[in-house]
Nucleic acid binder design. Structure first.
Length: 572
RNA sequence: GGGCCUGUAGCUCAAUUGGUUAGAGCAGAGCGCUCAUAACGCUUUGGUUGCGGGUUCAAGUCCUGCCGGGCCUACCA
């Protein structure tokens, strides 16, 4: 059996994520996971919260909570929203888990043994008032180049000049505003990515089928300037995985933690370990997904992420795996996405601009969001969410094309034949033509889904729904019933069976509506339709059904206007 | 500044990797149907493929120069 390991980029802990984050990784990953399970593959689909780092500490302080409690709360919030969007993770883990702590320390130790870790001493800005070292971005001051007063320590937003925090005039802490800053000497560990550059380069070169977005970003980092740079993997923070060399202390590194971008990808492994532990199974259970010497050699590993995550997944994390010189699984395919914008600008957490996961579920069922976001996934370029497009898309596709199809045929049958699949007649020319068309379209749909061509798959699925309406229109059982009851019965029977087939085909995109369709047809038969003629006679004459409630109500103009105003955010 | 991506119908996107007359959906127009959520079906309007050069028997596709949009640029994650 095909075995597929799927991971979605792990969302950061410091708040509810917006729709852009959702469509860039978790949603398409879920689509793929659901589809591959339907097709008979053995799937392990993992996601987690990314909990370490400065922003998490500051968010916790702002919320008046201990960082540990804050993360526990926010993890539960995000887990609940994931359930709301029907994200079918086999496990939703936490990068702060003991499993991740152990594995992160383990990898650091192995990398050190293999000579891929280097200690470097460097100067960093320390804030006496805040009692902590400040990342470059958390220092503000006047730009020496253009005079902009709110330039950050890494770059001036106004003139785009790259800066060093010590370049700033009148530097101050972004956290407290304090100017009581000093430069202190501190020691950090670096991952010697440069020593693995040739291995990484050859590996990326071999991935000719990856999205251009993925490989071009990787190649840029590999070849830009002096080539791939070594990366600092430790920080002077409280909240994180304590720096240790495996189980041993790391002299000189006391009180320091690993950088989030070192431990976050390792959580992909740790999450599998969490999953195994949660199920009460031994380590072999997750090793068979992650260790090629323990059964993972036939696993296909696919990652989903937004483009901002690509450098870490194509370079840093693979460097960690390669540098271990151990048989851990490397990713086989990286599906990356561009960004989703909101009404002509960016989503903004601080301005409350745009739709966030909790808002979305509050106003409409998850299927509406899943369908629109996936059928408009930002695959080739950044794409834009507007309420008008959203309304037009879901009303037309879900309500008019699919929902109304289910409604018209079930209600027709109820009024003319009663609430069971009618007997009599056989598939006619129209039915034969429909089956031929659908066989072609389903084959195309499967091809797009296997290739993770999300928008193309959605367009094909929609065409499959449209074919049902075309068939009904041509067969016109409401007319033929007057002269040829068997003809009308056979066509009605075919159309009712089509509902079940649509439910199965559509399940990866709209799982709730799919379940409602199956329930209405009083069936739990969800096997993938191989032979269509057989699949379309699965519900035999006499099989009872219910006329379902409206599957998708329409989004009204008033609602659209109200939501557009509500989520516009403040202007400054 | 550098790099990458991108520009095709009013809108959102395709175009088998250089090969017939550039196609779909939405929106618009007309017709049909009356089972259905004012739904559905059929027909149809609409393009100098951002602009200018070049290569080629052949260019939306390749090269080059402009113009516009976006992203990244390594201590936010």
């Amino acid at each position: 059996m095909t075995r597929i390991l799927i991971t979605s980029a792990i969302p950061y802990i410091n708040g509810v994520k917006h729709l852009g984050t959702l469509v860039g990784s978790q949603l398409p990953a879920d689509l793929y996971a659901r589809f591959m399970r339907q097709r008979g593959a053995e799937v392990l689909f993992l996601c987690a919260t990314d909990e370490h780092g400065t922003p998490a500490e500051l968010a916790a302080t702002k919320a008046g909570l201990a960082i540990e409690d804050y993360c526990t709360q926010m993890h539960e919030t995000q887990a609940e929203l994931s359930r709301g969007f029907r994200l079918s993770f086999d496990h939703f883990g936490r990068s702060s888990s003991v499993q991740n702590k152990r594995l992160t320390q383990y990898f650091a130790g192995v990398l050190a043994e293999n000579g891929f870790i280097e200690e470097r001493s460097e100067k960093q800005v320390y804030s006496n008032t805040d009692g902590r070292f400040l990342p470059d971005r958390y220092i503000e001051g006047t730009c020496p180049n253009c005079g902009y007063e709110r330039a950050r320590g890494d770059q001036c937003e106004n003139c785009t000049k790259q800066l060093d925090p010590t370049d700033l005039i009148n530097p101050r802490s972004v956290i407290s505003g304090s100017t009581d800053l000093e430069v202190r000497e501190t020691k950090h560990l670096y991952l010697k990515q440069s020593a693995l550059k040739d291995d990484l380069d050859a590996w990326i070169d071999s991935k000719t089928d990856w999205p251009i977005l993925t490989t071009s970003i990787a190649k840029k980092w590999l070849h830009d300037g002096d080539g791939l740079q070594d990366r600092g993997i430790t920080r002077d923070l409280y909240w994180g995985v304590p720096v240790q060399k495996g189980e041993e202390p790391w002299p000189g590194m006391e009180g320091k933690v690993f950088y989030v971008w070192f431990d976050a990808p390792i959580e992909y492994l740790a999450c599998a370990a969490e999953w195994s532990d949660a199920n009460g199974t031994e380590d072999e259970a997750w090793w068979r997904w992650w260790r090629t010497d323990e059964g993972a050699d036939d696993v296909r590993y696919v990652q989903f992420m937004g483009k901002d995550n690509v450098p870490f997944h194509t370079l840093s994390f693979p460097a960690t795996i390669m540098g271990s010189r151990e048989p851990w699984k490397l990713v086989d395919y990286i599906k990356s996405f561009n960004f989703l914008n909101y009404e002509g600008g960016q989503f903004s957490t601080s301005l409350g601009r745009g739709v966030f996961m909790d808002d979305a579920l509050e106003i409409l069922p998850s299927d509406y969001w899943r369908w629109w976001l996936l059928s408009n996934a930002p695959e080739t370029s950044d794409t834009e969410f507007t309420w008008e497009k959203f309304q037009a898309g879901v009303n037309k596709d879900l309500a008019d094309v699919l929902g109304n199809f289910v409604s018209r045929i079930t209600k027709f049958c109820r009024s003319k034949f009663g609430q069971e699949v009618p007997a009599g007649g056989e598939i006619g020319d129209g039915g034969t033509a429909l089956i031929a068309e659908l066989e072609g379209r389903i084959s195309t749909y499967v091809g797009h889904m296997e290739a993770m061509e999300v928008r193309k798959a959605a367009a094909e699925l929609r065409a499959i729904w449209v074919a049902g309406n075309e068939f009904l229109q041509a067969a016109a059982p409401w007319s033929t019933i007057k002269t040829d009851v068997d003809r009308a019965a056979a066509d009605t029977r075919l159309a009712l069976n089509l509902i079940r087939v649509y439910a199965v085909l559509s399940a990866p995109f709209i799982p709730d509506a799919s379940a409602a369709m199956l329930a209405a047809m009083r069936t739990e038969e969800t096997i993938w339709p191989g032979d269509l003629t057989t699949a379309l006679s699965r519900l035999p004459p006499g099989h009872g059904f219910d006329v379902p409630d409206v599957l998708f109500r329409k989004v009204l103009d008033e609602e659209r206007e109200e939501w557009a105003a509500r989520f516009a955010g403040s202007d400054n």
